[in-house]
Amino acid sequence: MATACSHVLLWVRDLHQAVRDYRKLGFKVEYATAERKAQHAHIWFTEGPVVELLTTPRSAKWFKWPIELMAGRGSGRRMIRWSESGEGFCDVAVVTESHAFDRELTALRKAGVPVGRAIGWRRTKPDGQEIHFKFAYPANDSLPFIVSPYDPPQHPRENRHPNGATRLSRVRMGVRAEHREAARRIVGDDPTFVLEPAEMTGVRAIEITGLTADLDPTLLHGAVVLPARPMADPSHVHRSAGQ
C-alpha cells in the first residue's frame, strides 16, 4: 500500500502541562487550535511524521456509541482506549498519497482488513487558517488508522528545535501475532515502522534524529523518546513510497 507514517499520538491528562514540559525538553510545540480550548498540539519537523499530543474530555466514554455510529465499528472503543491506558503513546496514523485515500480504504477491505467509513474533518489553527483532512479507523482498534494529507500542507519549511531534533525517524511498534498481517498491510513498506513481536499491539517507542542527549523521563508523560540509532536488524524494516 502507498502509505507512510503520518503521526504518533501521545495521550496526556493535562495538555497545557504537557506542552510546557515538552518545551522544557527542547521541542517547539504548537497548539493545533486556539490554546484556551485546545485538545491537540503538534511537534512538527520539516518533513516526515509528527508527534501529536492530545487529551480527551472526562466524559469521552459517554460518546462511544455515537462515535461508532459516525465512524464505524471499533472507533468508539479506540477513543476510550486512548484515555483508559493512561499517559503515553496511544495510537499511530498512516497517511495516503494525495488523492488516494478512498482507493487505499478499498484495497484494505479487499485484503480482509475491515475499516470504518471515511470521515471528513476540519480544524481551525490559532491563526485562523482552516485545515481539512479525512480519516478512517480499522475495526480492530489497536491497528494504525488512515488519514488523508492535510489540505493545505502543514510541514514548516524551517523548524529548528533547541534540542537538535530534526526528524521522527523510527516508530517501534509491538504487534500481536494475529495482528501482524493486517498491520503489515496498513503500514506498507514505510521504513519508519519497525514491527516487533509483542503480547499487545501498539507503539512502544519512537526514535528522533538529531537529539544530542537523553531526555528527562519525568517530563515525557509516559512516552519513550530515544535518540535515533542504526537499525540492528534490517529484516524488520518495511520500505515505502513515503508521503
Rank of each mutant, 00 (worst) to 15 (best):
V51K: 08
L226I: 09
A4K: 06
P234M: 08
R184C: 11
L53W: 03
G164M: 13
T96S: 15
W62D: 15
S148G: 07
A228K: 09
T218E: 13
H132R: 13
P217Q: 07
G174P: 11
T106C: 10
T33F: 00
L211F: 03
V8A: 09
I208M: 02
I67L: 15
P57T: 14
A100D: 15
P49H: 00
H179A: 07
L143C: 08
R13E: 15
A198L: 02
A71K: 02
L168S: 06
R122S: 12
V50L: 11
S169G: 14
A107N: 10
G164E: 08
P49L: 00
R81H: 11
P126R: 03
D233S: 09
E130M: 15
M173R: 13
E87T: 02
A2V: 06
P126Y: 07
T46F: 03
G116R: 03
L53P: 06
G88R: 02
F135A: 11
A232H: 08
I67V: 12
E207N: 08
R122N: 11
R180H: 10
R23S: 09
G222N: 03
K64S: 12
D189A: 14
S240Q: 12
I131D: 09
A177I: 11
I67H: 04
T46K: 13
M200P: 00
P234N: 07
V94Y: 01
D102S: 15
T166C: 04
H236S: 14
D127G: 07
L54S: 01
L10W: 01
V194A: 13
G116I: 00
T56K: 08
R117E: 10
R160E: 14
A177E: 14
R167Q: 12
A71F: 01
Y137R: 07
E84I: 02
G74Y: 02
A107L: 09
R122P: 00
N163S: 07
G48H: 06
Q154N: 12
W82R: 10
H7D: 01
S142I: 12
F27M: 03
Y31T: 06
S98K: 14
W44T: 06
A136Y: 08
P114L: 01
L108Y: 13
W62C: 02
R77M: 09
P234I: 09
R81N: 13
A165F: 05
A118E: 05
W82S: 03
A198D: 15
C5A: 14
D102A: 11
R167G: 00
P57E: 09
L168T: 10
A183L: 07
G86Q: 05
K61P: 08
W11R: 10
P230I: 04
R180V: 02
L168G: 04
Y137A: 06
D189V: 04
D233N: 12
V224P: 00
G202S: 07
I206F: 00
D189M: 13
S142M: 05
A232G: 12
